[in-house]
Structures are given as structure tokens and as C-alpha cells.
């Protein structure tokens, strides 16, 4: 296992796309809470100087809420990391390095395991960073900092991890089908629409309305519901629903089996 992950690291360390996408993503991770704070202060200072500070009106950084707020927003930037996975996997086939790896003595199973470990590690590292960011910004700006409310909704980090693993596996699947980095990334970016279109078609043709909500992209999007409706006094889920989680985990298992199956049976 250590050998497989170290091989993946050797393939990433000198790769420019890896560092560009990773740094860009982490800049966004830190930039969003800072930007939101700056925007909030600017509005309170310039637009509504008589009101109480915006951060009091919208408790964006408040503990308990912060986990859902941050992970929900961060979800929209997962596509940067998914692109990284698409490039990484598609390249192995467009350059035929996967074939050379196998010739050199890797089994197809090991090749899959290496990529899967890469996906798990990247998702774990990003989740830990997001956990730390929530903690730091919460401690800085949240009015409540008692340990009970601090970690009350921390399970959203777990949901975020599941969301990452799911999206990365989907990215790997796209890469295995397309096998070209450029088109792969484009397909990934438009995947959400492709899926909605497919769902609409299926619904129209076969009359299966529930399908739209259980296709992979839709399933991962509802894992973390938008927390912001509640500030406009409408109803929302401020917890993770079991049925959403079950669908996500089911897709993760399906994608693992599908990706492994493709690698095992294909000529390289």
C-alpha cells in the first residue's frame, strides 16, 4: 500500500497541473471565508451603517452552523480537484503509461488500487484542511466557542469527505471512458448538465421521475443541503439525511466496482 501511494506521489510531484490546481484550490479554500468577512464588513460599513454588523445578522461563522456553511460552499469548487483526477487518470491512458506500468510489473488490480488510494488520500487531506479552516474561522469570529456547540455539526466534514470521494471516483470513471485529458475535463465540467439532460430524457421516455434525484451528481449535491435558505426563514435540512448518505455510498461502491472492472478487462 505504501509502495502504491509512493508511486502515485512520484507521478504527481513533478507534474505542473497538480500544483497549479492544488494551490488554486487551497487559495479558494482560504479566500472564501476571508472574502465573505471582508464583504460583510464592507456592507455594514458602507451600505447599512446603522444596522448591527452583518455577521450578526447572518451567522455565517457561528459554531454549529459553520460546518454546513463552509462545506456547502466548498462543494462548488470540487470540480478543480476532480479535474486533477481526470487529468491524472486520462493521461495514463493517452500517454500509454498505464500500459508501461503493467509491463513493468504492476498488476491491473494494483494500478486501480494506486488510483483509489490517491483519491482517498486527496479527499482525506482536503477534508482535514477544511476541518481546520472551520475550526480556525469559528474560533476567530463565532460568538459561541464552548466545545459542545463547536463540534455539534462536525459530521458535515464526514459528508464532505464522502462527497469528495464520490466526485473523484466519478472523475476517474469519466477519465477511463474518455481517455483524453482535454475532452475529459470538458465532459466533467458539463457532467452535471449531461446528467440532468439524461434524467429528463429518461423521465420523459420511461416515466421514472425519481431517477433524476438518484443519479450520481444529483445524489452528491443533496448530501449537504443549502444552509442559506434558513436565513430567509424557509425550511431546510440542517442535518445529513440517512437516505442521502445511503445513495451516495451506493454510488461510491458502484463506481469503485465499475472503475476496477474497466481497468481489469481493457487492453492497455
Amino acid at each position: 500500500m505504501i509502495r502504491l501511494i509512493s508511486i502515485e506521489l512520484l507521478k504527481l510531484k513533478p507534474a505542473r497541473y497538480f500544483w497549479i490546481l492544488l494551490v488554486l484550490f487551497f487559495v479558494i479554500l482560504v479566500g472564501i471565508p476571508i472574502g465573505t468577512y471582508a464583504l460583510g464588513s464592507w456592507i455594514t460599513n458602507n451600505v447599512m451603517p446603522d444596522e448591527s454588523p452583518l455577521k450578526d445578522i447572518i451567522p455565517f461563522y457561528d459554531f454549529a452552523d459553520i460546518w454546513q456553511n463552509f462545506t456547502f460552499l466548498y462543494q462548488y469548487f470540487t470540480v478543480l480537484l476532480s479535474s486533477l483526477i481526470v487529468i491524472n487518470v486520462a493521461q495514463e491512458f493517452s500517454l500509454q503509461t498505464a500500459r508501461q506500468n503493467v509491463i513493468d510489473g504492476m498488476s491491473r488490480g494494483e494500478f486501480f488500487k494506486g488510483k483509489f488510494l490517491l483519491i482517498l488520500s486527496l479527499a482525506a487531506v482536503v477534508s482535514i484542511v477544511v476541518f481546520l479552516l472551520c475550526l480556525i474561522f469559528g474560533l476567530m469570529y463565532s460568538p459561541v466557542t464552548d466545545t459542545h456547540s463547536m463540534f455539534m455539526n462536525v459530521e458535515f466534514i464526514g459528508a464532505y469527505f464522502l462527497h469528495l470521494v464520490h466526485d473523484f471516483l466519478l472523475a476517474m470513471f469519466v477519465a477511463l471512458l474518455i481517455r483524453r485529458t482535454g475532452i475529459g475535463v470538458v465532459v466533467l465540467i458539463f457532467y452535471g448538465w449531461i446528467e440532468q439532460f439524461a434524467a429528463a430524457l429518461i423521465e420523459y421516455a420511461a416515466g421514472l421521475p425519481f431517477l433524476a434525484s438518484i443519479l450520481p451528481n444529483a445524489a452528491t449535491k443533496v448530501l449537504i443541503h443549502s444552509p442559506f435558505n434558513k436565513y430567509a426563514l424557509s425550511q431546510t435540512f440542517t442535518y445529513i439525511r440517512w437516505e442521502d448518505m445511503a445513495i451516495s455510498i451506493a454510488w461510491i461502491i458502484i463506481l469503485i466496482l465499475l472503475n476496477r472492472w474497466i481497468i481489469n478487462r481493457r487492453d492497455l
Partner: peptide, 15 residues
Amino acid sequence: IFYPSFTATQNLKIT
């Protein structure tokens, strides 16, 4: 077959 933007050493380390 090698990674085009890696050096000879970086490529052989993988092998």
C-alpha cells in the same frame, strides 16, 4: 513510453 514533461531520472524513479 515515458511522462514527457518529467526528466529521465524522475521517469526511472517511477519504474
